[in-house]
């Protein structure tokens, strides 16, 4: 299909149809691992990569796989991709791999990935599918990172702690202590905090959307009232 607008795709993935805060997909990793920025970046990158790979492969085989068995096939592809990523992380960022633990293999069951594979990639050609995977992954990762930052800040009064787990020794002193002598606010680090902050993010997004809509509605012309009426009784002689 040629009529795919990349601009539209980007807007969808990052804002209008954001997988994390609009579609509310993949909540399990979203809530579980976003206790710090580094965790969020790690999982976000992993998910994005898997998304790109899976969307690409699904798009490639979309004309071969029959409709009835498409889901098992997709899951297989995703599982393979996840395994590759997991092995890579194990090799290069071992500590982070250990922190993320079960959530790395669980990317397989992340609904975002299957959702995009089934909802988009299997109906579109290679390039759009690949781009969609990338943007959706970025949208997801952005929310992850934002949430992680919020929680890290509220929970421990600092930001970007332990970045060396992901970026190597260079990043060891990236940590910014925002509030000195902070009493750790455990609630923010624990899963309830994730729910609360996700809720707040969604609320803020809805407020912004409502403002935009209101401004647009004010600009748009009012259609004529009752202009679409038809006669149900045929012609009248």
């Amino acid at each position: 299909m040629a009529d795919v607008s990349y601009r539209e795709l980007s807007l969808n993935g990052l804002w209008k149809n954001n997988p994390a805060i609009v579609q509310l997909l993949g909540l399990c990793p979203l809530l579980a691992v976003t206790s710090s920025v580094v965790n969020a970046i790690g999982l976000g990158l992993a998910t994005t990569l898997v998304l790109v790979i899976s969307n690409t492969s699904v798009s490639l085989i979309r004309n071969i796989v029959s409709d009835a068995v498409r889901l098992p096939a997709f899951v297989m592809i995703i599982a393979s991709a996840v395994t590759c990523i997991e092995l890579l992380m194990q090799a290069y960022t071992y500590e982070l791999y250990q922190i993320l633990g079960i959530f790395l293999p669980l990317i397989t069951t992340n609904c975002v990935i299957l959702g995009r594979a089934d909802g988009f990639a299997c109906k579109h050609s290679l390039l759009p599918a690949m781009y969609d995977g990338l943007i959706m992954g970025l949208g997801f990762a952005l929310v992850l990172v934002f949430l992680g930052a919020l929680r890290e800040l509220a929970g421990s009064g600092a930001l970007f702690a332990n970045m060396d787990l992901l970026f190597g020794p260079v990043a060891a002193n990236w940590k910014i202590v925002v509030v000195d002598d902070y009493q750790n606010f455990l609630l923010a680090i624990l899963p309830p905090g994730a729910f609360i902050f996700t809720g707040l993010i969604i609320a803020v997004k809805n407020i912004i959307d409502a403002r935009i809509d209101a401004r647009r509605a004010a600009l748009r012309e009012k259609p004529v009232k009752g202009s679409k009426r038809v006669r149900v009784t045929g012609t009248i002689s």
């Binding site: 009493q183 750790n184 455990l186 609630l187 923010a188 309830p192």
Partner: peptide, 10 residues
Amino acid sequence: VVLLISFPVQ
């Protein structure tokens, strides 16, 4: 409960 799980020491 929010306090209890956040600040168990206090």
